[in-house]
Design a protein around this nucleic acid. Structure first.
Length: 454
DNA sequence: TTGACTCAACATCCTTTGCTACAA
DNA sequence: TTGTAGGTTTCCATGTTGAGTCA
């Protein structure tokens, strides 16, 4: 009656009796073997243990770990988050050491993971979206633990007891290394909802899983898949919960500006090209995904294509209106002594601002060395202002500022939260941070702006 | 090691009105 | 009656990143 479990290239192989009772296992009667995606390992083991079934478990191949001890003292909310995670939660049969934690940028998410590593004393894989974060995590882990730290990504492929990987490299290697870790930490776990990246979660057998993010929910509802792969949201604090204690207090000022008559005319023309097409072709946006229908049509229907292009042009006008640039001039004037980051939605606008106000700019076209130089000079005070598009939203260690100006942006709540996070590091003088949001009156931007505020 | 390139993957992209079929 | 879910699978454009290749 013994059930034997093995890891086999990203799946679990089960042999024995009554395999069809096991949760998530597909039984093949001919070969008398069962198969399940590797992420079901913890649930299957849990079921077997609860039903007093004998198990020959050879799934994990874990290296022995040195004593993983960190001197870090968790803040009370970090401790609460760690405890909630250890208890698991949600669902009918919650599994321990599983779940996602939502904490604002700058509140010390890394430290919660370090606490988990120390508690479990098991080989751990940390998965992060960018190489910048790979380096930050390596530095952190090497400082906290007396253990070698390996890396997947950025040209290195070396596994150690503690290993940091990009999502891309984890995707490529998951099948090979899926049995070598007892704990996996997904930093910026919302990425795991991506169509391809979710396979990483499926192919790993690690029973303990932690997801960290500042914005758990996804507009496409893929966080439900994340809950299945990592665990439910077990702990959550918002920026407002920590403002004043561990993050700076802040104010948001929304400034409404008018289009010039010429801009207004062009905006209305493009916008109506778009809406006229919608009316004519009977397209209704009853759900968010209906926009896909329009995009699909534009592949074959020139009018649909023209409608979309017109919409693009209208967006560009409202997002980069003259009045916004003028308002920015006033803001920069009012904040001569402050450290200001200006955000735009389009590179062209970022370059315009850069030229007009002589502010250094960072976009994805900025090379690594130049980028490093600009950030370094912003950090040491040589520059007090930076203009950027979407580059600094996530995964880059950006020096603190106290004023942010959103000249234009998408309706994404995530983008807004990340941009706000850039100014929330506690101020030495206890001062408040200030975020300006510029919105063109009577345009679709009013709706966009309200959407991103949740 | 670096830099320049290509490629693939991911994310956002949206209007305010009310179709159609089916289940509770 | 009322409320809720609903077929299809791919991609107009822009921004961003990591991996891989080649010099």
């Amino acid at each position: 009656m013994t059930v034997s479990l093995r890891y086999d290239d990203g799946t679990l192989r089960a042999e024995g009796d009554a395999l069809d009772e096991l949760p998530g296992v597909e039984y093949d009667a001919r070969s008398h073997t069962g198969r399940a995606p590797a992420h079901r390992y913890a649930a299957i083991r849990d079921w077997l243990d609860r039903n007093d079934r004998a198990v020959d478990d050879d799934v994990l191949a874990l290296d022995t770990v040195p004593d993983l001890h960190s001197d870090y003292e968790l803040r009370s909310y970090q401790q609460d988050a760690l405890d909630a995670w250890a208890a698991g939660g949600g669902g009918d049969e919650p599994l321990p050491n599983r779940g996602c934690i939502e904490l604002p940028t700058g509140s010390g998410k890394t430290v919660v993971a370090i606490g988990a590593i120390e508690r479990l004393q098991t080989p751990t894989l940390v998965v992060v979206p960018t190489l910048d974060l790979v380096h930050q995590w390596r530095t952190e882990l090497e400082r906290e633990f007396d253990a070698p730290v390996g890396q997947f990504g950025g040209g290195e492929q070396r596994a150690e007891v503690l290993t940091v990987s990009t999502y891309d490299s984890a995707y490529l290697k998951a099948e090979d290394i899926g049995d070598r870790f007892g704990l996996v930490v997904f930093d910026e776990v919302h990425h795991l909802g991506g169509e391809g990246f979710r396979d990483i979660g499926r192919l790993l057998a690690a029973p303990a899983r932690m997801g960290l993010t500042a914005t758990f929910e996804r507009p496409d509802d893929a966080h439900e898949i994340i809950e299945e792969l990592v665990g439910p949201l077990v702990y959550r604090l918002s920026v407002d919960d920590l403002a004043g204690d561990h993050l700076a207090r802040y104010d948001v000022k929304q400034l409404t500006v008018e289009l010039t008559p010429d801009e207004r005319e062009r905006y209305e023309e493009h916008q109506s090209t778009f809406t006229d097409y919608l009316a004519r072709s009977n397209i209704r946006f009853t759900s968010g995904s209906d926009y896909q229908e329009l995009i699909k049509r534009s592949g074959t229907d020139p009018e649909a294509r023209e409608a979309l292009l017109a919409k693009q042009r209208a967006r560009r006008i409202m997002m980069g209106s003259q009045a916004k640039v003028d308002a920015l001039a006033d803001i920069l004037d009012d904040h001569r002594g402050d450290r200001v980051i200006v955000f735009t939605a389009h590179n062209a606008l970022a370059y315009d601002i850069s030229e007009r106000f002589l502010i250094p700019t960072i976009t994805h076209e900025t090379g690594t060395s130049e980028r490093r130089e600009v950030l370094e000079k912003f950090r040491d005070g040589t520059y007090s202002r930076v203009v950027t598009s979407n580059v600094l939203d996530e995964g880059v260690d950006v020096p603190d500022a106290n004023v942010a100006v959103i000249l234009s942006g998408s309706g994404s709540e995530r983008e807004f939260t990340q941009r706000l996070g850039r100014i929330l590091r506690p101020k030495t003088d206890g001062g408040r941070a200030l975020l300006y949001e510029l919105v063109s009156a009577e345009t679709a931007e009013e709706r966009v702006a309200s959407r991103r505020r949740g």
